[in-house]
């Protein structure tokens, strides 16, 4: 009897794993095709990527100029802030590239082509993610990576295994948070295609905000980006752990290292909202 139950459980787990593998394979196919399609316009891709690298790089020059003039920011040095800047931009670049399908959802719903996704026997969210992997975002990605590496070098931080693990966790967690914001933006389109600016402000404002340590902001603002949109969990806390600095807000080290887990959780929550939006679409059709 008990063995029977165990076997059934195993079988269910096996079926779930097969489902995930199946979905991952389809996603891989989508992405491969998206890349091939973009490679048809190779020159355009290269120019966009280089342009993206330079235009986001100028932003950092601005920050550098400020620090050259004022020395530090409430006790944070330029190399320290570089860690924030680099991490956030690498995360955001990943999210922009991977969640591009959600970012351009308003066009899909306006043209009526969203119906086609509903006519295919696959998860809607998977098809949305598979619409496009925008390669040009590699510009911001490398720009962020360069700044991150420079900051770490200037601070003389040795890249130990735990530091690398925390940094990778923060990058992936951050990508989940930003991807979640793109999912929310798309979800809102089920009700109106006009007010997506609200989410846009949070997304791009979030990128700007998280480029600096949380402690420089006011309380309510800090709470918004900690509890509602958990950007602090994927930048501020893990960076404290990487720096080995004590948190003026008093959080323990272990919490700081594990905080990026909030990213996937936030993303899962936004997917629930998305499903709610799809249900709404089923009954209104617009």
């Amino acid at each position: 009897m008990r063995r029977g139950l165990g076997q059934r459980g195993l079988r269910r787990v096996a079926a779930l794993l097969a489902d995930i593998g199946d979905g991952a394979r389809l996603y891989g196919r989508y992405i491969a095709l998206s890349i091939r399609a973009q490679m048809q316009y190779r020159a355009s891709f290269i120019m966009l990527a280089v342009g993206h690298f330079l235009s986001t790089g100028i932003e950092f020059l601005g920050i550098w100029a400020l620090f050259a003039r004022f020395g530090d920011l409430k006790g944070w040095s330029l190399p320290e802030v570089s860690l924030f800047y680099g991490l956030v931009n690498v995360s955001f670049a990943l999210a922009e590239a991977a969640a591009r399908g959600f970012d351009t959802f308003d066009g899909l719903i306006r043209s009526g082509d969203f119906d086609r996704l509903l006519l295919r026997p696959r998860s809607i969210a998977l098809q949305m993610a598979g619409r496009e992997l925008q390669l040009m975002r590699i510009g911001r990605f490398f720009q962020g990576l360069v700044v991150l590496a420079w900051g770490a070098a200037a601070l003389g931080l040795p890249w130990t295994v735990d530091r690398i693990a925390i940094a990778l966790g923060a990058i992936v967690g951050g990508a989940f948070v930003f991807a979640g914001l793109f999912v929310l933006q798309a979800t809102l389109c089920f009700w109106t295609v006009e007010s997506i600016e609200i989410i846009n402000t949070t997304t791009y404002g979030g990128v700007e905000t998280a480029q600096f340590p949380l402690t420089i902001y006011r309380d309510w603002f800090r709470r918004f980006f900690t509890y509602l949109v958990p950007l602090a969990s994927v930048t501020y806390f893990p960076i404290l752990a990487i720096l080995g600095r004590d948190d003026p807000l008093g959080t323990p080290h272990l919490f700081q290292a594990l905080a990026p887990l909030a990213g996937p959780l936030f993303f899962a929550a936004t997917l629930q909202a998305w499903r709610f939006g799809v249900r709404h679409y089923h009954s209104t059709g617009s």
């Binding site: 199946d22 394979r25 389809l26 196919r29 091939r36 026997p121």
Partner: peptide, 26 residues
């Protein structure tokens, strides 16, 4: 089939769309 819209991937050769549909419909 919607006459006004295509379900094929605009930038891809037809055969690639077919192959992708194979994957989608298992």
């Amino acid at each position: 089939v919607f006459g006004q819209r295509t379900q094929l991937w605009w930038d891809l050769p037809v055969i690639e769309s077919f192959d992708l549909l194979r994957e989608i419909y298992r």
